Amino acid sequence: MQSMRRRVRLAPSLVVVSLAVLGLAGSLAGCQRKEAEVQAPELPVQTVSGFLEIAGVLDRRGEQGAVFEVSPETGDLVAFVFDPKSALGQRLLSQCVQNMPCLVEGVRARPLDSQAPATKVLGELGFSVSPSAWLGMIDAGDARVESALEEPEMQVKTRFGVVAVQEGDSSVVLNGQTVLSPQEESVRIVRNAPVGAEDVLLLQSGSGTACPALFQVLAVSAQGVQVSPKFGSCSDRVFAVVEDKPNMAPKLSIRMLGFAGPFEPEEEQRKAAQKLVEFVYQQGSLTRDGKPVTSQ
């Protein structure tokens, strides 16, 4: 996935990697540490102002979970192990949503040996990242789902020319030619990524509390331009990631929270915000749950 321009200050970001779902190939080597390190003093509390991509948190028996801190300076991975059944684990799971970025603050942890029972359980899964160190989570502060799109832009350069949103009427042009007619609401480009032979842009519109955000996909290729219907749950907490797997056509997965308007009961708003809504753009087709997306 291309690096994203963060909406919060840059700091170590955390990624919860799938333990029950992904089943990725590769070995989880871990950092070889001396037994004495298991008894090392607790690390000082650190505030994490980055993103957690939660793609599953449990091992196959539901006994262990792990959070991976990715340093933006070095790219090193540090595995923070936690018990999903503990009060900390339950709180983390209740405040974050699977497959969505989450911001977690105030993490406290201590070093673990790579042969400790918890790390052995996780190491048996054999997934594709190899931490440089293992840490056991002791505590963490509040966590909340955040958006992880790029900074909104009015103009971007693609492999096939310049796409620009016009001031005033929010029409969209490619190399000076109109590809999206004037819009009633302002439009911004919030994602620009190569997806196979296409450059795929995510356009965001919408405002206010009733429906903060709707989206359109604009795909540019050597064959021309395609623009999708508007889509979305109305939530503006969104994550768009390119998935390029062997023997499969690449795709852009656009994930967002569910949404219940401000006039709905608070319980309905809370339940909606714990659900994941996912749209997929792949080779000219935009789908939700495998069904084509039509105009709203």
Rank of each mutant, 00 (worst) to 15 (best):
S3L: 14
S3W: 04
S3A: 11
R7W: 08
V8W: 03
P12Y: 02
L14V: 11
V16A: 10
V16F: 11
S18M: 01
S18Y: 00
S18L: 01
L19W: 00
V21P: 00
V21R: 10
G23Q: 09
G23N: 12
G23C: 04
G26R: 07
G26W: 07
S27D: 05
A29I: 07
G30N: 06
G30K: 06
G30D: 09
C31N: 12
Q32V: 15
R33A: 15
K34C: 08
E37M: 10
V38I: 08
V38H: 06
Q39R: 08
A40I: 05
P41A: 15
E42H: 04
V45D: 00
T47M: 02
T47Y: 02
T47H: 06
V48L: 15
S49L: 10
S49H: 09
G50F: 08
F51H: 08
L52S: 12
I54V: 10
I54G: 01
A55Y: 08
G56N: 00
L58Y: 04
E63I: 03
Q64D: 10
V67D: 04
V70C: 04
V70S: 02
T74F: 13
L77Q: 09
V78N: 02
A79E: 14
V81R: 02
F82W: 01
F82E: 01
P84H: 05
K85Q: 12
S86I: 11
Q90C: 01
M100R: 06
C102V: 04
C102K: 07
G106S: 08
S114D: 13
S114M: 12
Q115H: 13
P117M: 13
V121I: 11
V129A: 07
V129D: 02
S130P: 03
G141I: 01
D142A: 14
A143M: 07
E146C: 08
S147Y: 08
L149G: 02
E151Q: 11
K157I: 06
T158V: 14
T158M: 14
T158P: 09
R159P: 04
Q166F: 06
E167H: 05
E167R: 07
S170P: 02
S170L: 06
L174M: 09
N175R: 12
N175C: 05
Q177C: 05
Q177S: 10
T178M: 15
V179G: 11
L180M: 15
P182A: 07
E185A: 12
R188D: 09
R188H: 11
I189M: 10
I189R: 08
I189E: 06
A193G: 03
P194Q: 14
V195F: 14
A197D: 15
A197I: 13
L203H: 09
G208A: 12
A210S: 14
A213E: 12
L214M: 06
V217M: 13
L218E: 10
V220S: 10
G224L: 11
G224S: 08
P229L: 00
G232K: 03
G232V: 05
R237L: 13
V238W: 01
F239Y: 15
A240G: 01
V241S: 06
V242E: 04
K245M: 12
K251D: 03
S253W: 03
I254R: 09
M256F: 05
F259T: 13
G261H: 13
F263W: 15
F263T: 15
E264H: 15
E266C: 02
E267C: 02
R270Y: 01
A272H: 01
A272C: 00
Q274H: 05
E278V: 00
Y281D: 07
Q283F: 07
Q283S: 15
R288A: 05
D289S: 14
V293L: 09
T294V: 14
Q296D: 03
